[in-house]
Amino acid sequence: MKLRGKQKSFLRAQANQIKPVFSIGKNGLSDLWLNEVQEVINNRELIKVNIQQASDITVEEAKSFIEENSNIQVVQTIGRTLLLFVVSKKENKRKISIDVAEI
C-alpha cells in the first residue's frame, strides 16, 4: 500500500504515544535485525526504531536499508527515530491498516 499524505498524518498521530521498540547500535544493520523487526511489526503494524548515539549508521542509511530489503515503509523520521508501518500478514492483527485504508 502506497501511503498518501493524509494517511501518513493519521499514522503520525497514532504514533505519538508509542515508545521505540528497537534500537540500532554500533553493530549496525543486519538481515537478522531486520527479520526481528518484521516479526514485531507484523503484530503491531506501527513501530518506532531509535538510532543510538554510538551508532555509525545515519538515518538515511537506515531508511534505505529497511525500505530496500523489506516491504516496510518509513512513514517519518524525527531526529534519530524512524516511524515504520506495514500492513500485517495476520488478518486478526490488522487494526491500524484498516483505518488507514478508509482514509
Rank of each mutant, 00 (worst) to 15 (best):
A62F: 11
V59D: 01
N42G: 02
L46Q: 09
E61I: 05
Q53T: 11
V37T: 06
I41W: 00
S70W: 03
N43W: 07
I57A: 03
V40M: 10
Q53S: 09
E61D: 13
V49N: 06
N43M: 14
R44L: 15
E45V: 04
N42S: 04
N43E: 14
E60N: 12
Q38E: 15
F65I: 00
I72V: 10
A54W: 07
R44K: 15
S70I: 07
S55N: 06
N35T: 12
I41N: 04
E67V: 06
L34Q: 05
N50G: 04
I72E: 00
E68W: 05
Q73P: 01
I72R: 03
E68V: 06
I72H: 00
A62C: 13
E68R: 15
T58E: 00
V49S: 03
I57S: 09
S64E: 14
L46F: 01
N50Y: 07
N71H: 13
I47F: 01
E68S: 13
I57H: 05
N35G: 12
I57G: 08
E36S: 14
R44P: 05
F65T: 00
E60C: 02
E61L: 11
E45F: 06
A62I: 06
T58C: 02
V37K: 02
A54D: 13
A62V: 10
E60H: 10
L46R: 10
S55H: 01
E36L: 12
K48H: 02
F65R: 03
Q53H: 11
S55W: 04
S64P: 01
V40P: 08
